[in-house]
């Protein structure tokens, strides 16, 4: 059984149809990379999966729980789906440690000692144990994004959604964040990653999904998508994006 099942998601803002029937499945341990032009609905798709945005139509299952079901405990579901934002969204008034600890304390109901240990372990996992006492404004963008990954990890999520996690970073800081993500993938974490980093997509993704104007145009292994895409648009886009981000194969 797939870990995540998305069925026929629709979403419109005003008259603009942003998602026009998106379906996909993710199995445990899989890394799925979503690519596509700007304004195509990639962020909207991720946010509809844990209902930070309410979809108009369609269904989402996490394991055998229907996320979109009426009586679903949404906060419990969200605690099981990590989310990493493009602009980090670390809690400004809290130190790195407190950012990571807030969920375990308030959502999981762990004791202070346990939550602290947990948070410190996750900070160590992203290589930032020594920055536990720093406020977000005192950290570089790359460090902030790693803290936000630790914040997601501390909830023991079954799945993490990454929305362009490196797009807001200076080029020299992208590597440290991608490094953490590669490590997570190797450890068997299930992830959906929206990104323009083709190097990451090529080497880490189990499957690449190409979205355009609210629908999935094509999906398949990196091998297939880069070598012999079935749809011409896919090839065009991959060429363009690889040029732009300097990662032609």
């Amino acid at each position: 059984m797939p870990l995540l099942r998305v069925e026929d998601l629709h979403k419109r803002y005003g008259t603009e149809e942003v998602l026009r029937g998106v379906s996909l499945t993710v199995v445990k341990g899989e890394t799925k990379v979503v690519i596509g032009p700007s304004g195509t609905g990639k962020s909207t798709l991720l946010r509809c999966i844990n209902r930070l945005t309410e979809p108009d139509r369609g269904r989402v299952w996490l394991g055998d729980t229907e996320v979109t079901g009426k009586g679903t405990n949404l906060n419990r579901i969200r605690s099981q789906i990590g989310f990493v934002f493009q602009d980090f969204n670390l809690f400004t008034h809290l130190t790195a440690l407190d950012n990571v600890r807030l969920g375990p304390l308030r959502v999981k109901g762990l004791g202070k000692k346990e939550a602290t240990e947990r948070a410190m372990a996750e900070l160590a996992r992203v290589g930032l144990a020594d920055k536990a006492g720093a406020y977000p404004a005192e950290l570089s963008g790359g460090q902030q994004q790693r803290v936000s990954i630790a914040r997601a990890l501390a909830m023991d999520p079954q799945l993490i959604l990454f929305d362009e996690p490196t797009s807001a970073l200076d080029p020299e800081l992208i590597g440290e964040v991608l490094g953490v993500m590669v490590k997570l993938a190797e450890e068997g974490m299930t992830m959906i990653v929206v990104t323009h980093e083709m190097g990451f997509a090529r080497s880490v993704a189990d499957e690449i999904v190409f979205m355009e104007r609210g629908v999935i145009v094509e999906q398949g292994s990196p091998e297939k998508m880069f070598r012999s895409p079935e749809v011409a648009r896919t090839g065009d886009f991959l060429r363009k994006i690889s040029e732009l981000y300097g990662d032609a194969a």
Partner: peptide, 19 residues
């Protein structure tokens, strides 16, 4: 003037609106 992303991030961790 607290940025909108703060609420979204809090909800994404699983905090209720009140929390």
């Amino acid at each position: 003037s607290v940025k909108a992303g703060q609420m979204m991030a809090a909800r994404s961790v699983g905090l209720t609106r009140l929390q």
